[in-house]
Computed example of a mutant assay.
Amino acid sequence: MLLKKNIPFKYVFGKIKYEVLLVAVYTLVVVLLHDRFNLKHMAIPLSVPMIMGTVISLLLAFRSNQAYDRWWEARTVWGAIVNDSRTFSRQVLSFIDHAYDGEEVGHFRERMVRRQIAWCYALGQSLRGLDGREGLDRHIPKREISHVCRYTNIPMALLELHARDLNYALKQGWINEYQQVQLDQTLSRLCDAMGKCERIKNTVFPATYSLYIHFALNFFILLLPFALIEYFGFVEVPMVVAIAASFLLIEKMAIHLQDPFDNKPTDTPMTAISRNIERDLKQMLNDHHLPETVNAEYKFYVM
């Protein structure tokens, strides 16, 4: 996720540097041909690109809104994951209280909470197309890692272990049936959140819609130098570049926002959110080995 401050111009311009270079060269060639051969017939009415520019602006605005809706939905789902992770850990620690003495109960409570931390990291890794097993050894034992590695969907396997442990706790009498239902409902909400993230990830933004807008934008940029040549001469080179850069940046913004799990700076900050969940849940366990706080002072994004 991009932060409000310290966004370098190099990052912004880097998204369209090749397109801007091509536009500058193309516009300069048009100006040189017009100036050298005095080709008056090259000019076209300014109203033509103006009408196209208006239509393209509306289309880009609509596409940007749709892309932002996808990004915001992803962020909303991860906000629910934060809440349900805290709720699940609180329920585990409060339902299975200290009335049940014994080392096994203590290990059970801690294992459930640490597995929930692992689930958050594994889900973020999986959504980004990375290895969901990476870093699991910091939170769950090796026997559980061996179990989940047999699954394609690592987060789903971790939720299955949660369900098995809840059934075991019920049989041992550590929780009653009503508490088991409450815990299972929380697991169901976590499973629903995972499914929503997977839906956003696997639902491709309509390619034809993007392609048509891209073609229309390129045609608009191709016409623009011929409409301004009679009015500005060589000055039209920076003008066309500036106008084209504005449209291209809006298009690039929409392209990046439409994929909130694409392992880019514009992503939903799943790693940072998981780190906050880890901090909160470890404090609930009275574990003082908290994750390091990311210093974003000199960074313009968090992942």
Score class of each variant (00 low, 15 high):
105 V>H: 00
34 H>S: 07
247 F>H: 12
224 L>Q: 06
267 D>C: 11
300 F>A: 14
117 I>V: 10
51 I>Y: 11
143 R>Q: 03
144 E>P: 03
92 V>M: 15
35 D>M: 13
6 N>Q: 00
247 F>C: 13
282 K>M: 15
116 Q>S: 05
86 R>A: 06
145 I>G: 08
88 F>G: 11
41 H>L: 10
236 E>H: 08
245 A>L: 00
50 M>V: 06
292 E>K: 12
18 Y>E: 15
170 L>H: 01
245 A>C: 14
239 M>D: 08
267 D>T: 04
225 P>S: 08
224 L>A: 03
195 G>M: 14
127 L>D: 09
106 G>Q: 07
237 V>D: 00
277 I>L: 01
87 T>D: 03
303 M>C: 09
286 N>H: 11
84 D>M: 15
200 I>S: 04
71 W>S: 04
158 L>W: 07
122 A>N: 02
299 K>Y: 12
260 P>W: 12
148 V>P: 01
255 I>K: 11
38 N>V: 13
173 G>N: 03
303 M>N: 09
59 L>R: 00
248 L>V: 07
202 N>W: 02
44 I>N: 05
142 K>A: 14
73 E>T: 09
178 Y>C: 07
177 E>K: 08
155 P>M: 15
130 L>R: 14
293 T>G: 07
178 Y>P: 02
63 R>A: 15
31 V>K: 03
224 L>N: 10
21 L>G: 10
27 T>Y: 03
2 L>V: 06
146 S>F: 14
38 N>H: 06
227 A>K: 07
8 P>T: 08
155 P>L: 05
23 V>I: 15
143 R>P: 02
181 V>P: 00
41 H>I: 14
43 A>R: 06
238 P>W: 07
128 R>E: 13
84 D>H: 11
148 V>C: 05
245 A>W: 14
133 R>T: 09
192 D>T: 15
249 L>H: 07
289 H>F: 06
295 N>G: 13
192 D>V: 15
284 M>V: 06
12 V>F: 04
118 A>P: 02
124 G>F: 04
92 V>H: 12
280 D>Q: 11
293 T>N: 06
183 L>G: 12
115 R>K: 03
74 A>V: 10
208 T>L: 11
37 F>E: 01
194 M>Y: 07
175 I>C: 05
22 L>D: 07
292 E>D: 08
77 V>Y: 06
14 G>D: 09
295 N>T: 02
148 V>A: 00
299 K>R: 15
133 R>I: 13
256 H>L: 09
189 R>Q: 13
259 D>A: 15
294 V>P: 05
33 L>T: 02
179 Q>Y: 01
176 N>E: 01
250 I>C: 12
25 V>M: 13
300 F>P: 12
192 D>M: 15
64 S>N: 14
117 I>T: 03
175 I>S: 00
202 N>M: 09
